[in-house]
Structure formats: C-alpha cells, structure tokens
C-alpha cells in the first residue's frame, strides 16, 4: 500500500527554487532515508507533506487519500528541532499532543519510560539537554500509535552517546514494522537504518530506490604506496581508463572501479609499471561514497 505519494511538488523561496517537480512514493513498512546536502530541499519536502509549508505546484496524498483532513493519528513527526512549551514539563507537553491527536488512551508514563525520560518527567522542557528534548519529541511523535513516523535530522547536534540512543530508539520503532521517513545527512546512520533512500540535490531528486539498488555493483578499490611513490601512483590511476579517483583517506587512495575487477591483475599491472603497492583492498561502496559520487 502507498503510504505517501508526492506528485510534481515544487516550492520556491523568492527566486530560490527549493524543490523542483518532486515525485516520490513511500510504501508501507519501508524505512526511507531522504538524503541531500544542506539546502537540498529535505526539510522543505517534509514541511510540505506535513502541511506547514505550502507547495507552489503539485500535490501529495497520504494513504491513497486526498490531504484534507490531515490523518492525525496515522502520522507522527519531528521537523527540525523539538518544539514544546519551555515552561511545561514532559507530561504536560505530551498531554497537549495527546489532546490534539485525540488519543487519551495512551499511557504517557510508559511512553516516557520507553524513551528513557521517566525520571525527568516533571522537569520543565527548558531544563532538558538536546538529547532529552529529541527523545521527548520522539515520544510525542509516537502518541496515537501512528503508522508512519517522520524524522528530520533526528541526531543533529547530539553527542555520540545521544546519537547512539536515538538510533537505538529508531531501530526499535522500525522493528515494530512502522513506516519511517527520515531526512538526514549522516549517511552512516541512514545506511544502518534505512531500506530505501532518495537523494536530493538543489531541489531535484537525483536517485531513489532500495539501498542495495542505489549502491549497485560498484566497488571501491583501496590502493596505497610509499609516500615517495605517491606521484607515480596517481599517474598510474589516471592512466587506467577503468579507474576513477574518488577520495583520499590518509595514505590510502579510494578508487571507483568496475565490480568485475581482478585485484591480482591490478597488482600485476602496477608492478609492471614499476609501482609497488603497499595496500590493495577491494570492497563494496558505502552509501556515503555513493552519495558523494552522485552529488559531486
């Protein structure tokens, strides 16, 4: 079943085109990552489908129905920062969300235990750390047991422990079979969590599909040589038509190469050109490398 269908949605801020004819479909049960550099249109996309931004053109539908009225109990979302009343505590803030979602049956205390905030349930929101605010926002998004959860940069600004906590919570939600649509530029995180990705650049959708399909068969060759042979190594990579230099990680060069490449043949060829490789490894591309290659 289609959970969300976006058709030809465009949005401009003055002369700046934030989104251009975006088409995207989310199927039930998928964990969808929306990727893109800053300013690529991720938050604008989420803002439009959540009804806080007005699209200039195009339309979208939730659960194969028209937008109005907003399917309040079926979608839980956090857009950019966690937004609550700073002078209210966690319980009072969640009660407001509960009232809006008309879901009085939710056990707020259990929800707060689930996101590890129960001990601080009576503290005012303004006294919370960023990680706690983000966890409260996730608890609020879960009120009404929504089918779909939308997270916009859920780990933005968090320390490593906070990132790990949020990731663990999102994985728990995904395990329950919920559909998740998550914008992020932390690709490692997306690769660990998401089944599908869509990549935006300058408001245009430039790639979309299951993570495996996006990564395809392309592989990365890691090559390294002694520092005195670095120039020769670069020249050798440049001469080979099947290789494309992508990046440098310390003393190791990361090279895009066809998936059927034979490492032994590569090593032999380098040796014949007078080059002794100190490091040679072939591996699958990471999502980050694919993303950088696509958005370059």
């Amino acid at each position: 079943m289609k959970v969300l269908e976006i058709e030809n949605v465009s949005k401009s801020y003055g002369k700046h085109k934030a989104l251009e004819s975006l088409n995207l479909t989310l199927e039930r049960g998928n964990v969808y990552g929306l990727l893109g550099p800053n300013g690529s249109g991720k938050t604008t996309t989420l803002g439009i489908i959540l009804g806080v931004l007005k699209a200039d053109e195009g339309q979208f539908s939730w659960f194969e129905e028209k937008y109005e009225p907003f399917p309040r109990l079926k979608v839980g979302a956090i857009l950019e920062t966690p937004n609550f009343y700073p002078y209210l505590n966690a319980i009072d803030n969640l009660r407001i969300v509960q009232h809006i979602k008309r879901s009085p049956q939710d056990d707020l205390e259990s929800l707060l235990k689930w996101v590890n905030l129960y001990e601080r349930r009576k503290s005012n929101f303004k006294s919370y750390s960023l990680g706690m605010k983000q966890r409260l926002a996730i608890a609020a998004a879960l009120i009404g047991e929504p089918d779909v959860l939308i997270f916009d940069e859920p780990t933005n600004g968090l320390d490593p422990q906070g990132i790990a906590e949020i990731r663990e919570i999102i994985l728990k939600i995904a395990d329950e079979g919920k559909t998740i649509f998550m914008a992020s530029h932390i690709l490692d995180e997306v690769e660990k969590i998401c089944s599908h990705v869509a990549i935006l650049k300058n408001g245009n959708l430039i790639a979309e599909g299951p993570v495996g399909t996006i990564l395809g068969d392309s592989v990365i060759l890691e090559v390294g040589a002694n520092s005195d042979m670095e120039t020769k190594l670069l020249s050798w990579i440049d001469d080979r038509e099947d290789m494309e230099l992508m990046n440098k990680d310390g003393a190791i060069f990361l090279v895009a190469i066809e998936s059927d490449c034979d490492p032994e043949g590569v090593n032999r060829d380098a040796f014949e050109k007078g080059l002794t490789l100190s490091h040679l490894k072939i591996r699958k591309r990471s999502l980050e490398e694919e993303f950088l290659s696509i958005t370059k």
Binding site: L50, G51, V52, E68, P69, F70, P71, R72, L73, V75, A77, L79, E80, T81, N83, F84, Y85, P86, V97, I100, K101, A140
Partner: peptide, 19 residues
C-alpha cells in the same frame, strides 16, 4: 508569540490540527 517563538504553532499543525 509563545507559539510562534517556540514553533509550537507549527508543531500543532504537524501533530494534526488543521489551520
């Protein structure tokens, strides 16, 4: 202003209130 400054007006719409 409490709602616009804390972006809770926007959050209310995200949570399901219509405009």
């Amino acid at each position: 202003s409490v709602d616009t400054t804390n972006k809770t007006l926007r959050q209310s719409i995200i949570n399901g209130l219509s405009r």
